[in-house]
Design a binder for these strands. Structure first.
Lengths: 138, 138
DNA sequence: TTACAATTGCAATTATGTTGCAAAAATACC
DNA sequence: GGTATTTTTGCAACATAATTGCAATTGTAA
């Protein structure tokens, strides 16, 4: 049993062609992807709706996370702490390059602890940083 | 000359009915609003497209800022530093309540400085915190 | 290998946001 | 004030993103 299939199983997902292909793509590609990216790649091969549903199932079962972003288009990236469904908390730092437009997760960075105002209870934190990425800053 | 009109003028915006009403609403309401919120409120009174354009003009001229959020729907909130068009930088902390779904700006909090990996250049930072807000946490 | 449950593809629908253009409104100028 | 100029509005059409229902297919447990 290979790694991809194993990962799917461990996240309570049945092993199907779309899922294997899309998960593999995320694992090699590393950067955040949109539904449109996937549709462009798998046009003819899989239905648009199937791709939407694949993304949703990955989201629900903790394989992917959604990156907040003001563009209006949902972007997804692999979760790197291997939690099972919904159990992981999302203390993510994401970086969006203004030049190449790519979004990536900065796993090495931690969001510093913050003192919230009274009675506020924090569950998740998402930090989105804009600027120029290392590749574009050569 | 009242305050609303003054604010519009200072941001190079002509004084029109939609703008006065929408700006007033933001000023009293305090929380972030979506286009759908405004459309629900001003249905029949103003055209959908006019509302979109009002939001855009406020955004361009520095009256509102867009809050990144994984819902896929654009949310807007008042800018509180009275910069003119585009001059303000968005180092915001936003809080999204999981219960009442409202988003607000936490003006008292600063985004802590972060050391980015080599060659990365930061321009803006947006921190979105999820959890339970003070009102819902009674 | 069969039986059941989950997933897929297709068509249709909804939600969100944009564009072009003529009519109306706001401001500038006298 | 009145009039010229510019901006804004409303409407219709379009574009894009995402969801739903349902029958056919596929995956998996027994």
């Amino acid at each position: 049993m290979n790694l991809i299939n194993n990962t799917l199983k461990h996240h309570n997902l049945r092993i199907t062609k779309v899922r294997v292909e899309i998960l593999s793509l995320f694992q090699t590609h590393k950067k955040a992807l949109t539904h449109a990216d996937l549709e462009a790649k798998y046009d003819k091969k899989f239905d648009r709706v199937t791709i939407y549903r694949t993304l949703s199932s990955f989201l629900e079962n903790g394989l992917l996370h959604k990156i907040p972003d003001d563009s209006g288009v949902a972007k997804y990236a692999l979760c790197h702490h291997e939690g099972t469904a919904h159990t992981h908390d999302d203390h993510h730092v994401h970086f969006k390059c203004k030049q190449c437009e790519k979004i990536e997760c900065l796993h090495t960075l931690e969001i510093p602890k913050l003192q919230l105002p009274k009675k506020y209870k924090m569950e998740n934190a998402n930090l989105l940083i804009d600027g120029i990425c290392a590749t574009c800053n050569e």
